[in-house]
């Protein structure tokens, strides 16, 4: 068996003394693991960085074998951002969420295209809101899309301000008033507003994080290993903590 595909590297772990086992999100073959002989060497370590866009060639005797990869880096997405904590945190969270959420070897071209577009952004300010939108897309691709088009109570499509944590449907500001403490805040940038703050991004992360934890990471196919199965991956929790501290520091300033 043999195929070639473009992919984004999600993770790499040592295997034996010199090899590495990597997980890629490929364009046409979904989330796919494989072994990279010599992956712990100097050349291997450079190419096996999470977020790298690679050209992958996979070979195995049978389709259900782990197989071996030959990887060539097309774009080292993380390299320009090593001094930028926000982007690095987003990149680490996106890779961790993707690996933990997606079933293996099931093509997810939409998720791949979204992640590829996110990692190609050259403006650091856009990473936060677009990451939240990518998580919304991930939820939709997995069958748990939120309905943010109209109010679940009144049916109106204007003045939407909250989301029901149970149904994932939007609620308008008027209808939300009696239940505000129990609803999730819907940041305006998810409804097309062109401006946002760190607080908006944090609200967006809380919104998508709630549904990822409830619908995706509570499932048995999830390959993450936290203490609680409904917890988000640690890298994703650190991203929310990063924005939380940014909001607190901004408020203090």
């Amino acid at each position: 068996m043999e195929w070639m595909d473009e992919a984004i590297l999600l993770s790499a772990r040592p295997h034996g003394e010199t090899a590495a086992i990597v997980t890629l999100l490929t364009a046409e073959h979904g989330c796919h693991a494989g072994m990279v002989p010599g992956g712990q060497g100097r050349r291997g370590q450079v190419s096996l960085q999470p977020g790298n866009h690679v050209q992958a060639a996979w070979r195995a005797r049978l389709l259900d074998h782990l197989g071996t990869y030959t990887l060539e880096v097309v774009t080292a997405h993380a390299a320009p951002w090593l001094d930028h904590p926000e982007v690095l945190n987003i990149m680490a969270a996106a890779c961790a969420v993707t690996e933990a959420a997606l079933p293996e070897r099931q093509p997810m071209p939409g998720v791949y295209a979204g992640l590829s577009a996110l990692f190609s952004l050259s403006d650091a300010d856009l990473w936060g809101p677009l990451y939240v939108k990518w998580e919304l897309g991930l939820l939709k691709a997995l069958g748990y899309g939120l309905d943010l088009s109209r109010c679940a109570v009144s049916g109106e499509s204007e003045n939407l301000s909250h989301v029901s944590p149970r149904t994932g449907r939007a609620v308008s500001i008027g209808a939300a008033q009696p239940y505000r403490n129990r609803l999730l805040t819907l940041p305006a940038f998810l409804l097309g507003s062109g401006t946002w703050t760190a607080e908006d991004v944090l609200q967006g992360l809380d919104l998508t994080g709630h549904f990822l934890a409830r619908h995706v990471f509570a499932h048995a196919h999830s390959r993450m290993q936290p203490a609680q199965t409904d917890e988000l991956p640690p890298a994703r929790q650190r991203l929310a903590d990063f924005y939380r501290r940014a909001v607190e520091n901004g408020a203090a300033a």
Binding site: Q45, Q49, P50, G51, A78, L82, D83, P85, L88, N89, M91, A92, R238, R245
Partner: peptide, 15 residues
């Protein structure tokens, strides 16, 4: 290390 994990840790320690 100049890796994603190394620099993510560096930013966290800096904070």
């Amino acid at each position: 290390n100049a890796t994603v994990e190394g620099q993510t840790t560096a930013h966290y320690v800096t904070e």
